[in-house]
Design a protein around this nucleic acid. Structure first.
Length: 553
RNA sequence: GGUCCCAUCGUCUAACGGUUAGGACGCCAGGUUCUCAUCCUGGUAAUAGGGGUUCGAUUCCCCUUGGGACUACCA
C-alpha cells in the first residue's frame, strides 16, 4: 500500500480511534459456564413493537435464562431516515410488561445497564470506524463513490444481460480505482460508502450450520457489500458482526429473512478474524391473505403491532403462552399437566422449535388461551388487571371500578373463587365493561319490548305474585341449593313445574316450568336473558339493590 | 430471473420405515337439578401430485406443483 493510501484513510477518518486490540481488552470474553447462552434481540426503532419481535425476544430470553446466560437488548438505529423517536424506550418497556427481562441494554426505567455497551448502535459509530479503518488498512475494504443512480442503472443493465444483480466482480468498478482517482473524488467533496472487498466466489459452496434450519450448502458471497454508509453509520451486516463479537453473543436467534445473508455474515466474521456465533433462524409468523400466506406485516395487519393486544386487553401472559405454543407445540400438553405453574418454568426445546414452520397467526386460538388464563385468576387479580387496562383505554370503566372497589370485586368473584368450574367467558379486558354494566344502576335498563314479550309468557299479575312470594323466603345468605329450592317451591306454588322433565311429562298440567320463573327474575334484575349464575349475582348485588329493581315491576 | 427454504385435518401440530394417521383450536350434535359461558360425550376433517428404494413409505431419494424468504448507502 503506497503512502498516498494513508492519506485516503486519514481523510476518511481524521479522528483518533481505538485499535481493534484496545477493543478486545475493553470487551473481554464473558466468564460464563460453557453451556450458558448469550443472546440478544436487536430491533430497529421504527415506531412500534412487532409481534414477531416479541416472539424472537421471548425465545432468545428463554434460551439465555434457562441456560444461565445473558439476554441483551440492542437498539439498531443505524437508519436515521426511518427512525421514530421513543421506540427504543417503548421496546424496553414492552418487553418488561410481557415478563421478558433483559440483563443488558436499555431497561424499563430507561437506563442502560451492562458492561458491553453502548447498546445503541448510533452511539457506537467510533467502534465501527475502528474496524472499517482497520479493514481499509489491510486492503480488505475500499471506498466507493458510485451514486444511487449509477447503481440503479447497473442493476437494470444486469437484468437485461441476465446477470445476477449487485456490486461484485468486474461490476465493482471502484474496487480497482487508483489512489489518485479516490483522492480526486474525495477532494471534490464526495462522500463515499465503504465496501467490503469480498474474497468470495459465487461458484464455491459454503457450508452453513443453523440450529433450526440445519446444515445447508450455499454459494459463497461475492458481493462487495456496503459496510459503512455515506453518513458514517454501518449497515446491518457490519454492525451485526462487530456488535455480536464485541458483546460476546454466543447465539444469534433472529428471523428467517436473514438466512440468505448467512454466507455474507460468516465471511464478515472470517475477514475480521473472529469466530462466528451459532445461528438459529426463526420461521416467521404468517398470515393468510386471500389464498396466499405472507409474513405478518406492519402496514397491513393491525395485529402485527403489539399495541393491538394491549388495546384489546389480552393479558400479557396469554400472548406469551400463545407464542410458546407456536414455538413448542408440546407447550399446551405441559400447560394441562402443570396448571398452576408459571410458564417461565416451561423448558423451551430447540428441537421442537425447529419443527415450527411459519405458522399462521390464529386469533381464535389466542382467544381460547386467553379465556383459560383469565379463568385461572382471582377476583383480586382480575380487578387489578382490568383497572390497569381501563385507566388507559376506558376511563369511565376505571372510574366505576374505583368508586366501589368491593362491589367490583364481588362482581368479579361470581363463579370464580371456590367455584367447581370457574367462569370462562372473558378473553380480554375490553369485554368487561359490557359484561358487568347491568350491575350498575346508571347502566341498568329494562328493554320495553323484551318486557312485553316476557309478560306474554307470564301475566303481570302472576309475575308480581311470583316475585313477592320468592322474596318472602329469599335470603342473600342462601347458597346455590337453598336458593334454587326456594325458587322451585315458589314456582310450584303458582303452577309451574319444578323441572323441565316434569313439565315435559305432562305439559297440560303446568303453566310452565321453573326456568320460566328464573327467566323472569333474571330479566327484572339484570335486564338480560343471559347472565352468569343468578344466585351469585343476587349475592353480589345485595338486598337493597335487589329490592329496588324488583319493585320496578 | 438468480439463490435458498418449506409442504399431515380449515388452523397449530404428533406419529424409531410397520398406528383404525393421534391431540389441541374451530365447527356440528347430544348431555349436565335456571339462561349464558363452561364442563362432559360423540362427530366432522389431513399425509399436494407423480415416480422410485423397500416385504412395507406420512417418514428416505428424484421430479412436478404449490407456498414463502432474500436479491438496498432498510433492517
Amino acid at each position: 500500500m503506497d503512502n498516498n493510501y494513508d492519506l485516503v484513510i486519514k481523510k476518511l477518518f481524521p479522528e483518533p480511534l481505538a485499535s481493534p486490540e484496545d477493543l478486545e481488552i475493553k470487551y473481554p470474553p464473558r466468564k460464563l459456564a460453557p453451556e450458558a447462552m448469550v443472546t440478544r434481540v436487536a430491533p430497529s426503532p421504527t415506531g412500534f413493537v412487532h409481534f414477531g419481535g416479541l416472539y424472537a425476544s421471548l425465545i432468545s430470553e428463554r434460551f439465555a435464562h434457562q441456560s444461565g446466560g445473558i439476554f441483551i437488548l440492542r437498539i439498531e438505529d443505524t437508519d436515521k431516515k426511518r427512525e421514530v423517536a421513543g421506540t427504543a424506550e417503548l421496546f424496553a418497556k414492552s418487553l418488561n410488561q410481557y415478563g421478558i427481562f433483559n440483563d443488558e441494554g436499555l431497561n424499563k426505567d430507561n437506563k442502560e445497564i451492562g458492561d458491553y455497551g453502548p447498546y445503541k448502535q448510533s452511539e457506537r459509530a467510533q467502534i465501527y470506524h475502528s474496524y472499517v479503518k482497520d479493514l481499509l488498512l489491510k486492503g480488505r475494504a475500499y471506498p466507493c463513490f458510485a451514486s444511487t443512480e449509477e447503481l440503479e442503472e447497473l442493476r437494470n443493465r444486469q437484468e437485461v444481460m441476465g446477470e445476477r444483480s449487485g456490486y461484485y466482480g468486474h461490476f465493482a468498478v471502484w474496487r480497482n480505482k487508483s489512489v489518485d482517482e479516490v483522492l480526486e473524488a474525495l477532494d471534490k467533496g464526495l462522500k463515499p460508502v465503504i465496501r467490503l472487498k469480498s474474497p468470495g466466489n459465487f461458484n464455491n459452496k459454503v457450508i452453513v450450520n443453523d440450529l433450526l434450519v440445519g446444515r445447508r450448502e450455499m454459494p459463497e458471497n461475492d458481493q462487495d457489500i456496503v459496510i459503512m454508509k455515506a453518513d458514517g453509520l454501518p449497515t446491518y451486516h457490519f454492525a451485526h458482526a462487530v456488535d455480536d463479537h464485541l458483546m460476546r453473543t454466543s447465539h444469534v436467534v433472529r428471523g428467517n429473512e436473514w438466512f440468505p445473508s448467512l454466507p455474507l455474515h460468516l465471511q464478515l466474521f472470517a475477514t475480521l478474524g473472529w469466530e462466528a456465533p451459532v445461528y438459529a433462524h426463526l420461521a416467521p409468523i404468517q398470515k393468510m391473505e386471500g389464498v396466499n400466506k405472507r409474513k405478518l406485516s406492519k402496514r397491513k395487519d393491525e395485529e402485527a403491532n403489539l399495541a393491538y393486544y394491549k388495546k384489546a386487553g389480552y393479558p400479557e401472559e396469554a400472548v406469551i403462552e400463545y407464542l410458546l405454543n407456536l414455538a413448542n407445540s408440546n407447550f399446551e400438553d405441559w400447560r394441562r399437566e402443570n396448571a398452576e405453574i408459571h410458564n417461565s418454568e416451561f423448558k423451551l426445546s430447540l428441537k421442537k422449535l425447529a419443527k415450527s414452520n411459519g405458522p399462521l397467526f390464529d386469533l381464535i386460538k389466542l382467544t381460547d388461551i386467553s379465556k383459560d388464563i383469565i379463568a385461572r385468576l382471582s377476583a383480586e387479580e382480575v380487578y387489578i388487571s382490568s383497572l390497569k387496562w381501563a385507566q388507559e383505554f376506558d376511563t369511565s370503566l376505571a372510574k366505576r371500578l374505583q368508586t366501589d372497589e368491593s362491589y367490583a370485586k364481588k362482581i368479579f368473584n361470581i363463579e370464580r373463587e371456590g367455584a367447581v368450574k370457574p367462569r370462562k367467558d372473558i378473553s380480554r379486558w375490553s369485554e368487561i365493561s359490557a359484561e358487568i354494566s347491568y350491575f350498575y344502576d346508571d347502566n341498568f335498563i329494562l328493554d320495553a319490548s323484551l318486557k312485553k314479550e316476557l309478560m306474554n309468557e307470564i301475566s303481570p299479575e302472576t309475575a308480581k305474585l311470583l316475585i313477592q312470594d320468592f322474596l318472602s323466603v329469599y335470603n342473600t345468605q342462601d347458597n346455590q341449593e337453598e336458593w334454587f329450592n326456594k325458587l322451585k317451591d315458589t314456582a310450584a306454588k303458582h303452577g309451574y313445574a319444578a323441572s323441565n322433565k316434569e313439565y315435559q311429562a305432562d305439559t297440560s298440567k303446568y303453566k310452565g316450568q321453573v326456568g320460566t320463573v328464573a327467566k323472569l327474575l333474571r330479566f327484572l334484575l339484570t335486564g338480560r336473558l343471559q347472565t352468569p349464575n343468578l344466585c351469585a349475582i343476587m349475592q353480589a348485588m345485595g338486598e337493597e339493590r335487589i329490592m329496588k329493581r324488583l319493585n320496578n315491576l
